[in-house]
Amino acid sequence: MPVVSLNNLHKTFAVKRKTPGLKGSLKALVRAEYQTVEAVKGISLELDEGELLAFIGPNGAGKSTTIKMLTGILYPTGGEAQVLGYIPWQQRRQLSYHIGSIFGQKPQLWYHLPPGDTFDLFAHIYELDRAAFERRKAFLVEALGIGDWLDTPVRKLSLGQRMRCEIAASLLHSPRILFLDEPTIGLDVVAKQQLRAAIQTLHDEDNLTIFLTSHDAGDVESLCKRVIVINHGQVIFDDRTSALKRRFLRRKVIGVRFGQPVPDDFSVREATVLKRGTWGVKIELDTHVRPVDDLIAALMAYAPVVDLTVEDPPMEEIIRQIYLADDAVTVEVVPD
């Protein structure tokens, strides 16, 4: 029995169009022109209890619009959706007791107050029994490692610290499904890793169903078994993450900075040097040709390494590869 099901979900917006400049503004004032933009074009999917789904796509693909319809914020233009048996936009209030949501760009924590104050507010909002609330809070504080910041005003927390507190706030009422919209947006590498680890822990502990949107392929690789890629409001890939990795996340870009100057004739076996500076190089690697760890070991053996980064291809490139691969467009989910 799926906990989330979408059937041919549509959402269109009327967007005002105007040519640039004052002339365009005056023209629009006299006669406004609107263009219908289809943000979501017939998305259908199902999500089972305990699944951790990555719903990814580039900016403007329709990820946030979909999640907003599933949490009852937006009314769809057409189609059907059920979350835990509720129709989100009609039974928003009943549904909200059973789901948690985090919008990366829309914090729920009160900015000038410590997270602990917002946690108390949420206990009132969800009408939680005081003892149960304290137990749940203690569990989340421990699981997310946020004990040191509970009394610090949110404005003084780093983005990573704040996001972990946001997650705690969203889980105080023990929801069955957590909707995460771009939770790692703006975070540095370390904060992203910490947040991903925390999400994984909470998923494992609570058998929490997680619906995660992101435009960061790294979120998908490290967290989710299943991935749906959408572009221009349509599903273009729905399969196991391992399939996505095998076929479209093969390329990595490794940046390395050495403790000594790089010679002019620097080269590496089975990889391409994209850029060479005085102290560092940028190398492109196909992981099917040579594993990442093998290349890193070789680089570290070559000279002392001061800094090293491993980057995934940008989402736009993954999408391009999916379109290029004739047989890639699939909406069949193969069970693990």
């Binding site: 949490t71 009852g72 914020i73 909200s96 007791y97 829309k106 729920q108 969800y126």
Partner: peptide, 16 residues
């Protein structure tokens, strides 16, 4: 578009 926060919580939106 800043009503999202209130819409995801189980309290009457307007007084909240």
């Amino acid at each position: 578009g800043r009503l999202d926060y209130y819409l995801t919580l189980p309290r009457p939106v307007l007084p909240h």
